[in-house]
Design a binder for these strands. Structure first.
Lengths: 255, 255
DNA sequence: CGGAAACTATGTACACCATACATAGAAACG
DNA sequence: CGTTTCTATGTATGGTGTACATAGTTTCCG
């Protein structure tokens, strides 16, 4: 018990803000504002104009309150961002209809990918610690179920879930196909193919031999055909190889 | 040619800033400042006090110049951040001594992981497009070599490289073991185990069954022993499974 | 029922930020 | 030598997060 009281105060504040509903038996005037309302307004602003437009004043204006009112419910902008990211993540998909664990994981990854596509600003919210919000944990829980069912141990499932989360997150961040989304209006969205050409012109083949070869092959092959799949090739190939590896691992373990 | 001139101007500016040395035959007084000097100063500041301390005024002070002098060499802070991130990444490791492609990839991942460990602020630099800096491309090139040697096609190698980059990047971002690094001074660094306990107390076992089970198993197992490996378990397990998958893929392809 | 306490929303103020713009001076060209 | 051109600087503007003091309202306690 004593150990639990010595926790990082920042984390504590995050947790209470993310989880704790305010108990209603308080003294002063009932607050018309709330963390939820503020977070929802923040999501609305970020959806509309991106994360760099998300200022306290903008949120307050959105709600019709003064800027400083927000600070009665939210200790800082950083914490608010954390809450907004959790709210913006929404509920995870239901994977119970998936035929096997592979399909479940692919569905999950596709949903997360789509979510980052719809709200690219979530990728810009700085992470200060592992996710502890209700929705973020729900996403994690939904992913852990098929992994555990596939025969992984607790630690392995956790590592695999971290791996998959990181892959989707990182790929979404890096992927140029999303660049047009989180670039406000001062830039034309550029595609992967554009970048390939530009870079190919730039680099020295002797210093970057592998990169040159890959680019040459890519240019020769022409633009990649869009698949009807939920996962684009750049993400799907890696996820599939990873699932292959997990499967053989689980198989050799159970044998 | 005409197509290449219609590129995103933002990307162009990034590229010239990242690659182009200034040609010296100009009219006015020789500039004592340069993009390189500024970027190096930015790296120094970020190393010392984190990304949120990195202001133009701070960099100028570091160099002993006025704030606005920087804008003679750098069009905006965003672009400067991009250059600083590339400079901060440094040169990739040499993988020629690796016994096989697995070891090469693991070495690469370990080096990148260590790099993010040493300069956690790089993870906070917003990504506006796929990496095009000299160092970032060098890292990519170094990774592509063993992947191509393992028998992957150009597109597959590219996807695999993206996967691995995303994994290391994302895991480094999420991993709580790094939290103490990029939290300045208002928070005690918290460990993974701490978080597990806190979260375990918080969540409803019925709403989060898999998560509850995993946490219970983890608490029962006690703290994870540190391995002498370059990769921590949370990252290494996933990378190994992925490499397994790549290997079988390459094997079935060549057969 | 009436004071007192507690809480909300607000207004003001401050330090800091990126950067647009004008200016002064120095170097190199014609 | 004069003109052009570029560097470094100073000033100024509109923005930011948030500390702090204040006014007003609601609930509790005596």
């Amino acid at each position: 018990m004593t150990t639990r009281d010595s926790k990082d105060p920042d984390l504590r504040r995050s947790l209470t803000l993310l989880w704790e509903g305010r108990q209603p038996g308080r003294r002063g005037p009932r607050s018309r504002l709330s963390v939820e309302l503020i977070a929802q307004a923040a999501v609305r602003v970020a959806d509309a104009d991106g994360l760099e437009a998300l200022s306290m004043q903008r949120i307050a204006a959105e709600l019709g309150y003064s800027t400083m009112s927000l600070y009665n419910h939210v200790p800082s902008k950083d914490l608010l961002l954390e809450v907004a990211a959790d709210v913006g993540a929404g509920a995870p998909p239901d994977l119970d209809d998936a035929a096997d664990f592979r399909e479940a994981v692919r569905l999950w990854a596709g949903a997360l990918w789509a979510g980052f596509h719809r709200r690219p600003w979530i990728l810009r919210v700085p992470l200060d610690h592992a996710p502890v919000g209700p929705n973020q944990l729900a996403w994690l829980d939904r992913l852990l179920r098929p992994l555990l069912a596939a025969g992984l141990s607790g630690g392995e499932a956790r590592a695999a879930a971290l791996h998959l989360t990181a892959v989707v997150r990182g790929t979404a961040q890096i992927s140029t196909s999303m660049a047009g989304q989180y670039k406000h209006d001062d830039g034309i969205p550029h595609t992967d193919a554009d970048l390939t050409h530009v870079v190919a012109d730039l680099i020295d083949p002797e210093a970057y031999p592998a990169l040159t070869a890959v680019h040459a092959a890519e240019i020769a092959a022409g633009p990649r055909k869009a698949s009807g799949d939920a996962l684009p090739f750049e993400l799907g190939f890696g996820v599939d190889r990873f699932l292959d590896g997990l499967e053989t691992w689980a198989a050799t373990k159970s044998r």
